[in-house]
């Protein structure tokens, strides 16, 4: 869901002192906002896109750059549900729990996924394969209940089709043999096309 929202075109910025090129993305956003403290949320968006989640080091880096207190940055990062301080699973399944989907029994889908994978909404399986998230309306209410599996919107789901879709995603990547790194590549690609 956290799709590309950095606006500047990809440019060959110099690598960050830490050697991790992803910091260059953060630096670019910092520069675009001229290091203004008000830009904290935008910077966190960029950081999460680049790294997948907000590690402690990353929060410290952002706090230093914006000259903000650590607790302030932590407070903001934990207030908004978009930001995650834990690594996310290789695959993710977002179940809409908005009103329209609730009326069309999305709760049964969540329950079925919970039983099938042993985790609750908001959690990641211990093997890091799957995260299940509940969302509040994905803006496709006409097609309720709605599900997003690895970025693909699926409409008019049932518990059975939902599990089948998740299983398919997991098996596909198991066959291909790698998942996580390709996700990161995706976010770079999206960077480029804007």
């Amino acid at each position: 869901m956290v799709e590309s929202r950095t606006r500047s075109a990809a440019s060959p910025d110099l690598p960050h002192p830490s050697g991790d090129p992803r910091f260059a993305l953060i630096d670019r956003t910092l520069k675009r906002f001229r290091f203004q403290q008000d830009a904290l949320i935008e910077v966190l968006h960029t950081a999460q896109e680049a790294f997948g989640f907000l590690e402690e080091d990353l929060l410290i880096y952002v706090a230093r750059q914006l000259k903000l207190p650590l607790s302030w940055v932590y407070g903001v990062a934990t207030f908004y549900h978009f930001f995650s301080l834990q690594p996310q699973g290789e695959h993710n399944c977002i179940v809409c729990m908005g009103t329209a989907c609730y009326v069309k029994r999305a709760a049964e889908i969540v329950a079925a996924l919970q039983t099938a994978y042993g985790i609750e909404a908001g959690q990641t399986t211990p093997d890091g394969m799957l995260s299940i998230t509940a969302a509040r309306c994905l803006g496709s209410c006409g097609l309720a209940p709605v599900l997003i599996v690895d970025g693909q919107v699926l409409a008019r789901e049932t518990p059975e089709t939902a599990i089948a879709a998740v299983q398919l995603a997991i098996e596909a990547s198991a066959a291909a043999g790698n998942g996580r790194s390709s996700q990161l590549d995706d976010s770079y690609d999206e960077e480029g096309d804007l």
């Binding site: 929202r5 403290q37 008000d38 830009a39 904290l40 949320i41 935008e42 966190l44 968006h45 407070g75 903001v76 207030f79 908004y80 549900h81 978009f82 930001f83 509040r136």
Partner: peptide, 25 residues
């Protein structure tokens, strides 16, 4: 453009402004 980060209360006008200013909504 400012992008929200997942908080219903940020639709409330004063919270929305706090969020635009990079704070807890």
């Amino acid at each position: 453009i400012r992008i929200g980060a997942g908080a219903f209360v940020c639709g409330e006008e004063t919270a929305l402004m706090a969020s635009i200013m990079g704070r807890r909504g």
